[in-house]
Computed example of a mutant assay.
Amino acid sequence: MCHNCSAVLGAAESVPVSAAPSRRAVARLLAAGAGLTALAACTPDGGTRPPSSSSPSATSASASQAATPSSAGSTSAGPETSAAATEPGTAAAPAPSAAPTPTSPAAGLAQQHSLTDPASPWLVVNKHRPLSPADYVPADLIQPNIALAVSGESAQLNSTTAAAAEQMFATAAGDGVTMTLASGYRSYGTQVATYNSYVASRGQAEADTASARPGFSEHQTGWAFDIGDGGGACGFQPCFAEQPAAVWAKANAHRFGFVVRYPWMFHQITGYYYESWHLRYIGVEAATDMAAKGIATLEEYFGLEAAPGYL
Results as ranks from 00 to 15, higher is better:
Gly35Arg: 05
Thr37Met: 12
Thr37Asn: 10
Ala38Ser: 04
Ala38Asn: 12
Cys42Lys: 07
Cys42Asp: 12
Asp45Leu: 09
Asp45His: 09
Asp45Cys: 07
Gly46Trp: 02
Gly46Val: 04
Gly47Asp: 12
Thr48Glu: 11
Arg49Gln: 11
Pro50Ala: 05
Pro50Trp: 02
Pro50Gln: 07
Pro51Trp: 00
Pro51Met: 01
Ser55Gly: 05
Ser55Met: 06
Pro56His: 11
Ser57Tyr: 02
Ala58His: 06
Ala58Tyr: 04
Ser60Met: 14
Ala61Ser: 13
Ser64Ala: 10
Ser64Leu: 11
Ala66Val: 11
Ala67Leu: 13
Thr68Pro: 01
Thr68Glu: 03
Pro69Lys: 01
Ser71Ile: 01
Ala72Cys: 01
Ser74Arg: 02
Ser76Ala: 04
Ser76Phe: 01
Ser76Lys: 02
Ala77Lys: 02
Ala77Gly: 04
Gly78Met: 10
Gly78Asn: 10
Gly78Val: 13
Gly78Thr: 11
Glu80Met: 00
Thr81Asp: 15
Thr81Ser: 14
Thr81Arg: 14
Ala84Ile: 00
Ala84Thr: 00
Ala85Pro: 08
Thr86Leu: 05
Glu87Cys: 00
Glu87Leu: 05
Glu87Arg: 05
Gly89Val: 03
Ala92Leu: 07
Ala93Asp: 12
Ala95Gln: 13
Ala95Ser: 13
Ala99Arg: 09
Ala99Pro: 00
Pro102Ile: 15
Thr103Tyr: 01
Thr103Pro: 01
Thr103Leu: 03
Thr103Gly: 02
Thr103Gln: 05
Ser104Gly: 10
Ser104Val: 13
Ser104Pro: 07
Ser104Met: 14
Pro105Tyr: 02
Pro105Gln: 08
Pro105Ala: 11
Ala106Met: 13
Gly108Glu: 02
Ala110Glu: 09
Ala110Asp: 12
Gln112Leu: 03
Gln112Phe: 07
His113Val: 15
His113Trp: 07
Leu115Ile: 04
Thr116Glu: 08
Thr116Lys: 11
Asp117Val: 10
Asp117Ser: 15
Asp117Cys: 14
